[in-house]
């Protein structure tokens, strides 16, 4: 099955097919859906970066909003106040969250279980309060707007103010990030992360410096969350202190649980399903948290491994009975 690791050929085939599908879609749907899909790609990136620390390393962090918000602000402020070009500001939207993730992670990985969850929430709250208070720099709850300059790539020029241009730009970066994460998880480093999730004590006894590996996972996830935030503000041409609120991390939690943690493809699928559901429900409801909450609870109770896990277990049952 293509969902299992190690079956590279099937995966590459499916990945290319999906990518091709996403490349031609903008020619058939209107601008509204192009924006919707662009936002979906951003949340997919946020969700898979969360999956790295939660699904693969076993650390539930509600602090990812901090890095998401930092990434968003980095892009916004660098372009708006310093007139930097898009690719450099995006690069910084990885680097600056990485530095913060290093700092936050250095303290957080010393704690385990519930204490880890709470300390990550606290760091995010501190970020949110500072963002809310320091209005001269961040625009507070009202936020800051900006217009990104066109992005040059060799002979091509991609206008990020153009929705279709932005679509392909975000799609490319998210696809590359996905492959990067997948490759990393299959590497020896990824195996160490999984061994920590499965049995931290054993990983330590084998001789791995568990805290150091947790910190590495936290930093990588932080950098990619920052990139997601940077792409998000590029898409909306806007960043606000609301990005930093710890409940933003809840998005990643929901997508990961619904799709299936520790699978990469699961959180991406989860983001697609939940966002489409929300998009549909918004016609009837003011906001969709009620349904999202119920879906989350139902998944946790009935299919804790998410949709992907559910499908996989069905296939395995089929195999053993055959």
């Amino acid at each position: 099955m293509f969902l299992q690791k190690g079956k590279s050929f099937g995966f590459i085939l499916i990945f290319i097919l999906i990518l091709l599908g996403l490349i031609i879609i903008p020619f058939f749907v209107d601008l509204f859906y192009q924006t919707f899909l662009t936002e979906l790609f951003v949340w997919i990136l946020f969700a898979i970066s969360f999956d790295l620390i939660f699904g693969y390393t076993g650390l539930l962090s509600f602090g990812q909003a901090l890095f998401f918000g930092l990434g968003g602000y980095t892009v916004t402020i660098l372009i708006r106040k310093f007139g930097l070009n898009t690719e450099l500001s995006l690069l910084f939207s990885i680097i600056i969250p990485i530095l913060f993730a290093w700092f936050v992670g250095y303290f957080s990985v010393k704690l385990t279980g519930i204490h880890f969850v709470i300390i990550t929430i606290i760091f995010a709250i501190i970020g949110n309060i500072i963002g809310d208070t320091w209005t001269s720099f961040t625009g507070g709850a009202d936020g800051l707007t900006f217009s990104p300059p066109p992005y040059r790539l060799g002979l091509f020029q991609i206008d990020l103010m153009d929705i279709k241009g932005n679509y392909y730009f975000v799609l490319t970066i998210v696809a590359i990030s996905f492959l990067f994460l997948r490759r990393m998880i299959q590497s020896p480093l990824g195996k160490v992360f999984i061994s920590i999730r499965e049995n931290e004590e054993r990983a330590r006894l084998i001789g791995y410096n568990v805290q150091r590996y947790k910190l590495i996972a936290f930093i990588i996830a932080g950098g990619l969350s920052g990139l997601a935030g940077g792409l998000y503000s590029l898409t909306l041409k806007y960043a606000s202190a609301g990005y930093l609120h710890w409940s933003v991390s809840g998005h990643a939690v929901v997508y990961t649980i619904v799709g299936g943690m520790g699978t990469l493809i699961g959180p991406a699928l989860g983001a697609g399903i939940v966002m489409s559901l929300e998009h549909y429900l918004i016609n009837f409801l003011q906001t969709t948290d009620l349904v999202v909450g119920i879906v989350l609870v139902a998944m946790v109770l009935m299919a804790p491994k998410g949709l992907v896990g559910f499908i996989q277990s069905r296939f395995k049952k089929g195999e053993t009975s055959a």
């Binding site: 279980g113 929901v254 948290d289 909450g293 119920i294 989350l296 804790p304």
Partner: peptide
């Protein structure tokens, strides 16, 4: 499963808040 209960009660929080809003 302590971590799973955190996520579950987070879902309850979202649902209850939204129900009250409605």
């Amino acid at each position: 499963k302590p971590i799973i209960t955190i996520i579950c009660t987070f879902g309850v929080m979202l649902a209850v808040q939204q129900l009250v809003l409605m």
